[in-house]
């Protein structure tokens, strides 16, 4: 399982994450909701080591890391075992769709080119973009780009896949194709941590939901419970505001 313990992160004097602990079992889908500026994205970025937390502990499977004593090889290990899907997709603009997916296999996992290509084609089938394999990102729609980005992360078989508002940059009519894909992955028992503003989606797809505000997890529980009957007042206010 993936365990975060007492994670702290500040930018200058601004404390963005204050003492966050979170356990995620393999196969679970956990969603994080909350107002902007709550530290949701920063938490994901700390897990993927795109930001280095100030203190705390992380455990991924049997791998324990004390963040204060984290070495470069720890960071590399973490990045190779966690996948990240960004709000802005960030596909490699100088690579085709197929190359975007094989890149990690070939460069990071040292898989042979032929084998990488075979795997990537299978992955493209799964994200339903096989016919776009030789296109460059600039010619794809936002939804298609995000599906490639999911494939790029997924093919490295991460122990956990992190989604940072995967549909927030998409046109409304393109949101669904990405959500459908994430749901399909949930059905395949892919461990996922999703930061999202799509409350209904969070309710449908997640095992658990965390409500985050001002750098802390304020409420956590089974998805339906947290979203339909929030116990905390701030969670109630946040969810009420979204209904209008």
């Amino acid at each position: 399982m993936i365990r975060l313990k007492n994670i702290y992160k500040a930018f200058g004097s601004l404390e963005v994450i204050k003492d966050i602990s979170l356990d995620i079992n393999y196969g679970d889908v956990v969603s994080i909701i909350g107002p902007s500026g709550a530290g949701k994205s920063t938490l994901l970025r700390c897990i993927n080591c795109l930001e280095i937390a100030d203190q705390g502990e992380m455990q991924i499977g049997d791998y324990h890391i004390n963040i204060n004593k984290m070495t470069k090889s720890d960071i590399q290990w973490i990045r190779r075992n966690t996948g990240m899907v960004f709000q802005g997709f960030y596909l490699f603009n100088n690579k085709t769709v197929l190359q975007n997916i094989t890149e990690g296999l070939i460069v990071v996992k040292k898989v042979k080119k032929n084998e990488a290509k075979k795997k990537a084609l299978k992955m493209l089938e799964q994200v339903d973009l096989l016919e776009k394999k030789d296109c460059y990102p600039s010619s794809l729609s936002g939804g298609q780009q995000q599906r490639v980005a999911i494939g790029r992360a997924l093919i490295l078989e991460p122990k956990i896949l992190l989604f940072d508002e995967p549909t927030s940059a998409l046109d409304p009519e393109l949101v669904n194709e990405v959500l459908v894909l994430i749901k399909k992955l949930a059905g395949q028992n892919q461990t996922m941590l999703i930061v999202t503003h799509e409350i209904n989606f969070a309710k449908n797809v997640s095992d658990r939901v965390c409500f985050m505000d001002q750098g802390t997890i304020i409420e956590e529980g089974p998805a339906i419970e947290v979203i339909n009957n929030p116990k905390n007042k701030r969670t109630q206010q946040f969810l009420d505001a979204l209904k209008h």
Binding site: M84, G88, F92
Partner: peptide, 14 residues
């Protein structure tokens, strides 16, 4: 865009 570097690092590239 710095996202290009972040995406590359997130899949484990140095």
């Amino acid at each position: 865009h710095k996202g290009q570097m972040e995406a590359a690092q997130s899949i484990g590239m140095t």
